[in-house]
Structures are given as structure tokens and as C-alpha cells.
């Protein structure tokens, strides 16, 4: 039979307590730096927003591929906003507020910009109608005549036949 002296038990309990505290600290330790370090948006995430924007300085060059310093600053702004938890739409709204609606790759369907959305389908419909009319006209022109030849032509044929008979 083993006998445990009370002081030995107390020491064992103390050691266990210290181990438990240490284990708890080890388990919880990785969580602290993860909370402190904000997730950094990747270049792909930044470019996903940037490609929907155009810098007015570099016309016709989407922000994600624009090489100027101004565009680099804009991309950095997008990165900061994404890091701060802004949504894609919130970032686009911010850029419109700061630099105007012309920074958007797809202009909002308001005012004159509405024409951008209306004209192409309208032109398609009108063009289709013109083609339909043209094809119908061509088909009508190409259709063989079912009506008898005019009387003058008939008379001409009759006279030729009569002349040929006379020569036989």
C-alpha cells in the first residue's frame, strides 16, 4: 500500500495547477495574435473591385491594370477600405462621391447615361426590322410571276410561231 504524505499531495496538486494554467495559456496564445492581425485583402480581392473603376486621369484604362501613381494610390485606398470591412458597393459609392460617376466602368442608368443602356437594344430591334423588311422585299421580287404574260408578248410569240410555220 502506498502512502502519500499530505505535503506530497499538495505539491502534486500545485504542479497540476501550474500545468493546467500553462496548458490554458498555450492553447489560448495563438488566438491573441490572430485577433490583433487584421486580415489583409489579397491583390485579387483588390483588383476585383479595381477593375470596375476607371481613373479619370488615365482614360480607358481600368484601375486594376493602370500603371500610374494615381492609380496605385487608388488601389491602396481600396485595400484600406476592404481591410476596414467595407463592401464592394460601399467602396464604389465612396469613389463616386469622391471622383464622380465617370469612374464607374458601368455608368448608373440615370440621366444621359440611360442612353447607354437603351440605345444598343433599340438599335438591335430597329436593325432587325430593317433586315426583315429588306428580306421580304427581295423575296417578293424574286418570286416567279404566276400571272399570264402580257398580251403584247403573247401576240409577239404567236406571230413568230406563225412565221416559222409559214417557212416550213
Amino acid at each position: 500500500m502506498t502512502y502519500h504524505h499530505p505535503s506530497t499531495l499538495a505539491r502534486a496538486a500545485l504542479v497540476l495547477f501550474v500545468l493546467a494554467i500553462g496548458l490554458a495559456a498555450v492553447v489560448s496564445w495563438p488566438a491573441s495574435p490572430a485577433r490583433a492581425q487584421e486580415p489583409t485583402p489579397s491583390d485579387n480581392q483588390v483588383n476585383a473591385v479595381a477593375k470596375q473603376l476607371y481613373c479619370p486621369v488615365c482614360e480607358n484604362v481600368p484601375l486594376d491594370v493602370c500603371p500610374t501613381q494615381a492609380c496605385a494610390q487608388w488601389r491602396q485606398t481600396i485595400r484600406e477600405k476592404l481591410t476596414a470591412g467595407w463592401s464592394e458597393q460601399e467602396i464604389k459609392n465612396y469613389f463616386v462621391e469622391q471622383y464622380g460617376a465617370r469612374v464607374l466602368a458601368a455608368p448608373p442608368p440615370r440621366g444621359l447615361s440611360l442612353l447607354v443602356y437603351l440605345l444598343p437594344p433599340l438599335a438591335f430591334v430597329v436593325g432587325g426590322y430593317i433586315v426583315y423588311r429588306a428580306v421580304r422585299t427581295w423575296r417578293r421580287a424574286a418570286r416567279p410571276r404566276a400571272s399570264p404574260p402580257p398580251a403584247a408578248e403573247d401576240e409577239y410569240a404567236r406571230r413568230i410561231e406563225e412565221e416559222l410555220r409559214r417557212r416550213e
Binding site: P56, V57, V96, Q98, Y99, G100, R102
Partner: peptide, 16 residues
């Protein structure tokens, strides 16, 4: 100050 919405530069029609 910033040219918010590029309104001022558009009013002056700046080129750069």
C-alpha cells in the same frame, strides 16, 4: 481641399 466628384475641375474643364 479635394475636388469632390471632380465638379470643380469639370466646371473649369481642366485638361490636367
Amino acid at each position: 481641399g479635394p475636388d469632390l466628384g471632380t465638379r470643380i475641375s469639370q466646371a473649369f474643364r481642366i485638361r490636367g
